[in-house]
Design a protein around this nucleic acid. Structure first.
Lengths: 175, 175
DNA sequence: CCGCACATGTAAGACGTTACATGATTGT
DNA sequence: ACAATCATGTAACGTCTTACATGTGCGG
């Protein structure tokens, strides 16, 4: 029951639980779909945080349903903890971009290899951009609230920038 | 001496050591200055990785100098391990952007508070952009190799995009 | 001679990843 | 009957953060 400060991952789960009781499985899917593009988490973490939060009284585990589904419900203390977390100034973003490390040390790579790596990643980002744009086109109109739309827009703008960066690389690096 | 696979942090240290022996302190400064914008690490990690790599024979610790400075030197196996790491396809970038979480759950915040948070972060990013641009202007010309310049350019483009995103947010969110 | 920056390191705990174990239900 | 997917959970390990402990040498 001793309350430790919420981490962002746990807080996000509480955020989703504002829409009603959900199981760990559902939360994993929700997180992946709705915040996965800028906040990674794993199934393992979700079950751990849920157990910890149930322990702290922020949520309560319901009866197991079919297939052992166990819904968690937000409690008033959970609501309060979420509100407190949300009010804090969010920290800076953390970016860990291995490709940029490789670029930085690119002079240690034989000619062509860096270009090859860059080409592969460019394609990957092009695919992600296409995915975001499709989602945006599809969901704008029906149930996409402006907050979710803002985060999606960030994804679109980010991926476009990454592509523009690839395309603006000097020939020395691109070849 | 048992060789485990290099992680990106350790590999980066080896990368820096290609330019000559350096101490942990120097490496922390080098990492912060040269890759810190897209690969975070702490002093604590650096000393740990150095100890582990010395153990594995990838680097050798030199004599302690004044103020206990202890230079580490790259060994041939270290060079090989670095080359091997660099050849792999780098993984995807990891972005953890707490501000976007707050935006996503923005409907749970009272009017004005989100705008306030956004304004603070916008300023922060404007400062970072100014810093990158100053560095680029200052160092372009003298000893800035195209690889380092490419990573800096990424920083500039990224920050500009973030600013553009702030400025394109719909009024419902910005107020 | 005193304060600050330099410099190395340890400890403890939080967080994250990967792999595995187990079983239920659905659809074919 | 069988495979695929749903669903929960544990174990082990790796990584990251924060704080602390300890001492050195430079500059005023």
């Amino acid at each position: 029951m001793a309350r430790r400060a919420l981490n962002a991952t746990a807080a996000s789960l509480l955020g989703f639980l504002h829409d009603g009781p959900m199981t760990g499985w559902d939360l994993v899917a929700a997180a992946e779909g709705r915040i996965g593009d800028f906040w990674s988490l794993t199934q393992s973490q979700v079950y751990r945080e849920l157990a910890a939060m149930a322990d702290d009284g922020l949520i309560t585990a319901g009866e197991r349903g079919r297939r052992d589904r166990r819904p968690y419900t937000l409690t008033p203390p959970g609501r309060a903890a979420f509100a407190e977390w949300l009010h804090q100034d969010p920290g800076q973003e953390l970016i860990r971009f291995p490709l940029l490390l490789v670029v930085m040390f690119g002079r240690h790579l034989p000619a062509g290899r860096l270009a090859q790596i860059l080409a592969g990643h460019r394609e990957l980002h092009a695919d992600r951009l296409a995915g975001y744009e499709a989602t945006l086109a599809e969901r704008r109109g029906d149930g996409l609230d402006p907050y979710a739309e803002a985060t999606l827009t960030f994804g679109v703008m980010y991926e476009r920038t990454v592509l523009a960066w690839f395309d603006a690389l000097p020939p020395q690096i691109r070849v």
